[in-house]
Design a protein around this nucleic acid. Structure first.
Lengths: 110, 110
DNA sequence: ATTTCATATGAATGATTGTTCATATGTTCA
DNA sequence: TGAACATATGAACAATCATTCATATGAAAT
């Protein structure tokens, strides 16, 4: 007969967050899981930039950048403000920076 | 004529990490960007567990869990040790916990 | 040795996703 | 009002990826 893990799981089970929350967490990290979006976030690390500046910096089309900015905005990772024809994007909070910083540490330490 | 962002980009450009590093960073977060793997990491948050215990806990097949554990191991997010037939997995370092914690904060604060 | 249990792995499939292209929206200026 | 610029968006296509199924490896026990 297969072995039993009721004991081992009893505690862990009670500490598991709700499925919906774990799903949201996965969805959040999915947004970080793309080089283009990482580049965009890095570009906004110090200061806001307009869409076409971002596009020029990372060497992608305006359309591609715009699509990705939308994904970042949906995840509340960037915010924007309009100034005439131009729209400036910035990081929306400090979590972005600390998540990236932790990831950076991880890959540079191994 | 389109507007110019040489000034705005001059500083940012010099601060951008190498492309390869940004790629690695995206690849790392890609591993976090899946509910099954998030569940696995959460399950290992406090203590090591064997593969079949994880499978039972999160309600997935042994095969699926094994595949995902491999992805986690490739990214150095989990480590394993063998004890007879059983293989126990654990989180490999503190970055895992802090990255998840930061993500958690982000989604619960908005 | 062979059976049983624990885990790993390869191939296949269905679903998700990033980019491109064409075009739409919104703003300014003449 | 119309032209030019900045950005957004929808559809389509290619590529990536998670799960399943079947099977392989590895270890213990009888």
């Amino acid at each position: 007969m297969p072995h039993n893990h009721d004991e081992a799981l009893k505690h862990v089970k009670s500490e598991m967050p709700a499925d919906e929350l774990l799903q949201d967490l996965g969805d959040l990290f999915k947004v970080f899981g793309d080089t283009t979006r990482i580049k965009i976030m890095y570009a906004l690390h110090e200061d806001e930039l307009c869409v076409c500046a971002i596009a020029e910096l990372i060497g992608m089309t305006q359309s591609a950048v715009s699509h990705q900015l939308k994904a970042l905005k949906n995840a509340n990772l960037v915010a924007s403000r309009r100034e005439g024809k131009t729209i400036y994007y910035r990081l929306s909070d400090e979590h972005v920076k600390s998540i990236i910083a932790q990831g950076f540490e991880h890959i540079t330490e191994n």
